[in-house]
Design a protein around this nucleic acid. Structure first.
Lengths: 218, 218
DNA sequence: TGTCGCCACAACGTATGCATTAATAAATGG
DNA sequence: CCATTTATTAATGCATACGTTGTGGCGACA
């Protein structure tokens, strides 16, 4: 264990992500601290981080509240992703990428296909995350990486809820293959465009589902 | 005063921005705390924020170091701005903007021109910041606003140093006028393109200057 | 009965003390 | 004289105590 802050941060984040703690829940710093067996100091720092990531809201005098993921929030997250991720991918395409890295991407995509055949949606999601994470790591811009990673995290929270409410994501894997090819060819412009379309489509689908669930307050 | 954290944060940030504290300086949390007359707890939180903004680096066991702005860092910052700000501007263009808001933008641009005629570079920089800040406020995406604002802050640090080392920025004001017109027409695509070119040009100029000053370690 | 004001409580912001641990210096053995 | 190990120091991470301040409840007065 690296430290109580990371511990509390990681555990609370996981609970929020998996809806182990219901959205909307509100408690004082002390109560959160008790729950994770730490004192207020590290708990406070953990909550501060989560608040910066948009998972938690700190309400003066009332403690912290687990934010429910609203359609509006997801729209914000995806709008930024739509602008940034294609740019990051284009940067990767512009650089020289090792064949090893490319096969890593292909492997992740293949795992997505296999998972789909087996109807294992969790494995699919995990492989999809892996694909995007690998691509992210190839982008040299550390700041961009951090920003995108935080946004992806938030989008994953929504995905974990909607995963079983949508038709199977066959198209995604095909788009991933196209993106890999664009990168291999070093075709900057097509990479950007393809990735953007990939994200726009994903966003539209997600928004439609969330819109229907709006009243449920997730 | 709102709190010792904001106080320490704001003061240290200002000092870094104006080079009141030299880049590269390294001190313990306690030393920073003493300097601003607060205890370690709020000082730590302030340093944490500045670290998230990329202005200081927290080195385990050695305290905090004021980061010198490197060419590489500025390249990162601008690459993200180039991707995000045009998108934000396009969103503004897509929405209905009040004539009042537009005239606010025009006013800022006019102040830039006047400042240039008077050779008042500080006033020019201030008006330029104002233009971008106003535009930012019109963009409905709160997350995007925060991200861009943080990046702009960092770019301003570089600008304050290079401001007097470059030829006078006549072209910027013209580009601002074009952008305002695009937004008024609601021309989404041209807004995006024009703004992107605006940023790309600014980035290129800045990079060229910083490249020449590389050895100075700012 | 409704409203205004006061009081008690609770949460937070801040300060501080203590234990942990990494870095540096010292000491010992080769 | 150098390498290795140990001891010391110092900075952090964490816990906790305290003062401040906002909030909600209770009572008094209109």
């Amino acid at each position: 264990m690296k430290g109580l802050v990371d511990d509390a941060y990681g555990r609370l984040k996981k609970e929020i992500m998996t809806s182990g703690i219901p959205a909307g829940l509100q408690a004082t710093e002390q109560e959160f601290a008790d729950r994770f067996g730490v004192s207020r100091t590290p708990m406070r720092e953990a909550l501060l981080r989560l608040s910066a990531e948009g998972l938690v809201e700190l309400i003066p005098r009332r403690g912290a509240r687990i934010l429910s993921l609203s359609v509006e929030d997801m729209r914000e997250v995806y709008d930024i992703l739509i602008a940034l991720e294609p740019e990051a991918a284009a940067r990767v395409a512009a650089s020289t990428v090792s064949e090893e890295a490319l096969s890593g991407l292909e492997d992740a995509t293949k795992r997505m296909e296999e998972a789909l055949e087996k109807d294992d949606l969790d494995a699919w999601a995990s492989a999809d995350t892996d694909f995007h994470e690998q691509l992210l790591r190839l982008c040299g811009n550390a700041r961009m990486q951090r920003i995108i990673r935080t946004l992806l995290d938030q989008s994953h929270r929504a995905r974990s809820i909607t995963l079983r409410l949508r038709s199977k994501p066959h198209q995604s894997t095909q788009e991933h293959r196209e993106i890999i090819e664009c990168i291999r060819r070093g075709d900057l412009e097509t990479t950007r465009r393809t990735f953007r379309e990939h994200r726009v489509r994903a966003a539209d689908e997600l928004m439609a589902i969330l819109e229907n669930m709006k009243h449920l307050r997730l």
